[in-house]
Structure formats: C-alpha cells, structure tokens
Design a protein around this nucleic acid. Structure first.
Lengths: 242, 242
DNA sequence: AAGTGGTCTAGACCACGTA
DNA sequence: ACGTGGTCTAGACCACTTG
C-alpha cells in the first residue's frame, strides 16, 4: 500500500492522500472522529510522528480538527465556520453582521453559458436557481443569485417552500453530503439594474460590489455558483493578506 | 533565557518569538541566511527538532524561506513575491498582468483624519502623498493614492523626481529597511469622480472598485495607506478562500 | 485510570547545493 | 566531501478529557 521506494513521494504525503481519500469516500463523515494517531500508525506500519505530520498539514488545511484529550475529527461547516471563512462582508466598523435572508424564488432552470462554464457543466444542464435578498441590520443590502447543479441537490426547493437556512453550506453538508472546502471569488463594481435597485431600495445605476463565488469541494469540484450584489454604503468586503 | 517552567509557553514558541525579534531588530536582514538548525539548537540548548518546529511555522508565515542544501533565509519582497501575495487584480481570463505606473505627483502634506486613523498617527502629522495611474495592457485602469508617514520614509520623492519603481514594497525594504509583511484590504463600489473619470478615460459616475489597503510590518505596525480605484470592465479582483 | 493529542529529545538516513 | 534542510523513527513526559 504505502511505498517507500526512493523515487516515490514521502510517506506522510501518501498518508495525507489516503486520509483525504477516505474522507472523500464518506468512510469518515464530517464531525466524526478518526482513529487515533497511534492506531493509524500501527495500521499503516509507520511511526506516530509520520502520521502526526500528515494530520498536522490537514489540520492547517481545515480538513481535520484536533481536540486535545479527545481525538482528531473531520471538520464540519457549522455556521460559525461558514461565517468565519466564507463571509467577508462587515460593517464599516469592521464588525461581522449576521445577515437574515428572504428567498425570492427557487426555480429549476437550464444552465446558462456562464453557469455551465463556472460549474463545469454542459450548457442546458438542469440547475436550481435561488434568488434571495439579505438584510443587514434589517436593511436590504445584498441580492444573491445561487446556482446549483440539480442532480447533486435533488429535491432542494421543489416542495415549494421558500424556507432555507441562512447558512446554506451547513445544509449542503447535512442534507446532501457535500462539504464546501474552498472557494474562488471575483469582485467587480457594477451599476445597479432596475431589479437590483427595486430590491435594495436604491437608485438605478448606484455602484454595487459584485461578488462572483464558485464554491469547491475537497477534491476541487465546483458545486455552487453564487453571484452577490452588495451595497457598500454602510458595509464593505474585508480581506486580510498574510 | 528560555524557560522550561510548567506554566510557561512551549519552547518552540519562545524560539519563534526570539527569531522574530532578531529579524525585527535588524540582526538578520531580509535575504540573509540565518544560522543552521543544528547551530541554533546548540546555541539555545534544545534539540534540532524543536528549532525545526519553530522555523517551520515561520516559513508558513512567510517570515523565513528554506532552501534545501543551502540554509534558511529571511524572506525578501522581490517583485515576484509582491505580485503573488499582494496584487489581486487579474484580467477576465484570470491572468495576472504586470501593470506599469505613471506617477502624477508626490507631495508632502499633513495627514487627514482618515489617514491618521488608518496609519495610527496624529491628525496633521507630516505624510508623503503619492498619486499614480496604473496601466494594464497600455490602458489606464487604476488610479492610486498612497500615503506614507514622512518620518519613516525621509527623502522619498523630495528630489522632485517622479520616477518610482513599480513594486514599491521592494523599495521600502531596500531603501528604508521596512518590510511589508501583511495587509488588510477593504473593498467597496464607488462612482467615478470627475478626476477619476478624466484619468481613466471613463464617464463620471462609472462604478469603480475601490480597494483601501493598510500595509503592515512584521510587528503589525501600519506603514502605508493605499486607496486604489479600479475599472472592472476588463479586470477584476481575485480572491481565493481556503 | 486510561486514552488522547501536544511537546520534546536523540538519533538515523536521504536529497540537494557548494566547494 | 561536507553541510544544509527533508524525512522518519522510537521513545519520553505533559495536559486534557472521559469513564
């Protein structure tokens, strides 16, 4: 199984890949505990230090979470984590605001060219398109269009209910076994359309911050396209560069 | 020097702090080699593994750079690194474009309220204010206002020359011994002013992406405020979230 | 008390760069 | 040939959590 040939990659890297594969397979579900370092070391025939190094890097990648005295767990997307990692809008004092959401509609459609390109689908593939308005401090501030491949999210929104949780990534994980692990965002300044203006109580043409996000699973598969248009009168997008 | 008391923090953390302090002091300049792991271990009376752990974390923080077979070096801000870490504008194909810059002026002024707040100075402190236009593919696309505390950057631009290198952070490091290590950015959508419009060949009111960046040294001291307004017709701000 | 991760040690061998 | 970092081992003790 593990190779110690000269030319092969290092042991801890092979173990890293193995752990990622097991998690991807669903052998270990998000939130569940994985075997202890000593057990894994025994099973794989390596020393604890080697397993430790593999786990350490996965913890740095937010794939695993260590809890002293308890064990190592597969990371989950509780609302805390979702907000901390993926939500970059703050008010002008730098405070994160928990947005409430109002779903405008949730429809089954066919993928546009752009959606198909971003989600790596064929044009015309069945998708679910959700539109919602997000309120910060009770004021409508952001309008979002979310596109999901229909096959991976079967049944979502088809019951006519427009109730969706605020933190969708938690839903994806719990209901559909899809864990969002990373995302790529493109930001632009755009002018508010008639529709934007109406929903956000602004004038047509007001500059809005457009955030186009593709969310990826652990194995880098794109599973959600989200286009958000946000008024930056009282809020902004906050980014920290190390 | 190092404490192994029960209540004290771990050895490798103390070593980390020590290394950071020495770099901050200027004992080891950017680009120079630091003592080998074995030497440091000997000097500090710990094992190589402990030093290694401290260095590993500093490498992850981009403070140090390891080169196999050669040694460990204090990170520098060559133009590569500056572009890779701090420059987030790409064209719509996702390619980074090396911008050229044209300096409009470079003046000694007094800090405004906003500049003072962002740079943690008193209002009215002497600052240097640089304004420049950046061209992507020969088209003016971005207009930047850069504010620096005058005392830390004595002499910059006072020779009346408007020639400044494209990658300012390299200049800060080489000429003034100030290494930019991290930055905080706030992004908003704004309408082009008359001046913006003239410089970027756009209509007044065109939505622009405003990037307000505070650049920090290793010890988190703010040393540069940079406000960039960017046309997002052919470009965008690209961010990756892990 | 037993089991977990967290830190630390001392040593081994390898891959790489320099001289 | 030598010194560097890169990987790996085997064992020790500590801090924390659970039964």
């Amino acid at each position: 199984m593990l190779s110690t040939d000269k030319g092969s990659i290092s042991l801890y890297m092979q173990i890293k890949d193995l752990l990622v594969t097991r998690i991807g397979n669903g052998d270990w579900l998000p939130g569940s505990i994985i075997p202890s370092e000593v057990n894994l070391a025994q099973e794989l025939g390596v020393s604890q230090g080697t397993v430790r190094k593999a786990i350490t890097e996965l913890v740095e990648n937010n794939v695993l979470t260590r809890k002293q005295g308890r064990g190592t767990f597969v990371s989950t997307h509780d609302s805390q984590r979702s907000l901390f990692y993926f939500f970059h809008i703050t008010d002008n004092q730098g405070h994160k605001v928990l947005p409430e959401s109002r779903v405008l509609h949730c429809r089954h459609k066919q993928a546009t060219r752009k959606e198909a390109a971003k989600l790596k689908l064929e044009v015309g593939t069945a998708v679910i398109r959700i539109e919602r308005v997000r309120n910060f401090s009770a004021k409508p501030t952001m309008i979002e269009t979310i596109t999901l491949p229909a096959d991976a999210f079967a049944g979502l929104g088809s019951d006519g209910k427009l109730e969706l949780p605020n933190t969708l990534y938690e839903l994806y994980e719990k209901q559909y076994g899809i864990t969002i692990h990373s995302a790529e965002e493109q930001l632009r300044a755009v002018a508010a359309s008639k529709h934007d203006a109406a929903m956000l109580h602004l004038d047509v043409g007001t500059p809005l911050l457009e955030i186009e996000r593709v969310a990826l699973t652990l194995d880098k598969k794109p599973v959600e396209l989200r286009v958000s248009r946000c008024s930056t009168r009282n809020h902004h997008y906050q980014n920290v560069i190390f």
